[in-house]
Simulated assay, not measured.
Amino acid sequence: MDELQARHKKEHKELQNRITQKKKQASKKTRKGVNDECDRLEVELKERQAGEFAALNGGGGDTPIEALEDLTLQTDQEGGEATATNGTASEDGGRTNGASTPSEGTNDDNQGPKKQNRQKARLARRAAEQEELAKQAAEEAKNLPDLKTQERERMLDAMKGRGLQEKEIRADGHCLYSAVADQLDQLQISFGAAPGSTPDLSGYKLVRSVAADYIEKHQDDFVPFLEEPLPDYMHKVRDTGEWGGQLELLALAKSYGVDINVLQDFGRVEKIDGGNSDKAIWLGYYKHGFGLGEHYNSLRKAG
């Protein structure tokens, strides 16, 4: 949720800058079209973010709209400043370019409060419209599919069909390694059985070390799939809470000499061949079920 809110805040800021730029560059002839386009961009961003919020929140709760209201008010105010700079149409149909001059018969002291009142009313009206649209989007988001619940139900059905039960693993960056460690313990395989492992480590830390050692010793098999230098990648695998994935599963299957079966949504099973069909471990992979995103649990034999 923190990551989602941070991204939403960044998107609001980027849209604000974009709208401000558009309004500053608008002329009298294009101003209406620019305002309409800016309104549309605000509504589209709000609707998409409302859907993302509802999906992550399991379809419940209201979507926050304060950030969107702040964005609307600020961009309107900046748009008003740009309008004053580029020139506005006067009530008698004339045009003023920047500040009025005495020769044009315009009095800044008289025009200022009137213009400010009109702008204030427009801001209030626009804010009310945006709030109503946000509420409508939130209601629509409540009707979106509950991906978390649906995935969970299908996974439980698939486990039952295969005689498996789930061992919950803490949803942190170490979940893959912790799940593998739990499975190795069920098979009575030592975490330090792989060559190059560090005996004084335990649990997921030792499994991380084993994965890093294997990748480092078989660089040709892994480097083509990396998007960063190997030393940096090794540091993330061995010493940080970076998530594990396909490459680490392959390294662990080869290191411990076990087949790794990953049960996924809709009952799909991905098998990573470790060269020993007599020993197999089972992991459950979730895409929507946990707040941090992708997650692995350990799957033990039922009963």
Rank of each mutant, 00 (worst) to 15 (best):
Q186K: 13
G79W: 09
I281Q: 09
C175W: 03
G241P: 03
E151K: 08
L230T: 11
E248F: 08
R125D: 13
G245E: 08
V269A: 13
L144A: 12
A82F: 09
Q186V: 06
L71W: 01
R122Q: 11
R122L: 08
L263G: 03
E216I: 00
Q74V: 11
V262I: 07
E47V: 02
K29I: 04
E228A: 14
K28Y: 05
N86C: 07
L56C: 08
Q111E: 10
G291L: 14
Q264P: 04
L73E: 11
L15Y: 02
D200C: 08
A179Q: 04
K22E: 10
E104Y: 01
L56I: 07
G80Q: 11
Q188S: 14
K28C: 05
G105F: 07
E44Y: 03
G241T: 15
A280P: 01
E228H: 05
E131Y: 03
L249A: 12
L249C: 05
G33K: 12
S178C: 03
E11Q: 14
K28W: 06
Q21T: 08
N57L: 03
I19A: 14
E151I: 03
A212H: 06
V43F: 09
Q130S: 10
K114N: 05
G60V: 14
K167V: 12
K114H: 05
A89F: 01
E3L: 13
E78A: 06
A194F: 02
K46T: 00
E69Q: 11
K279A: 13
L292M: 11
T75F: 01
F222G: 12
K29S: 13
L144V: 00
N143F: 07
R18K: 11
R122T: 04
L71I: 00
T20S: 10
E242K: 06
D157R: 11
K205W: 04
T85Y: 13
M1H: 09
Y296P: 01
Q49N: 13
L283Q: 03
P224C: 10
Q16C: 08
G163P: 04
H295S: 10
A138L: 02
D172R: 05
L252M: 14
R154G: 01
E153P: 02
G161I: 05
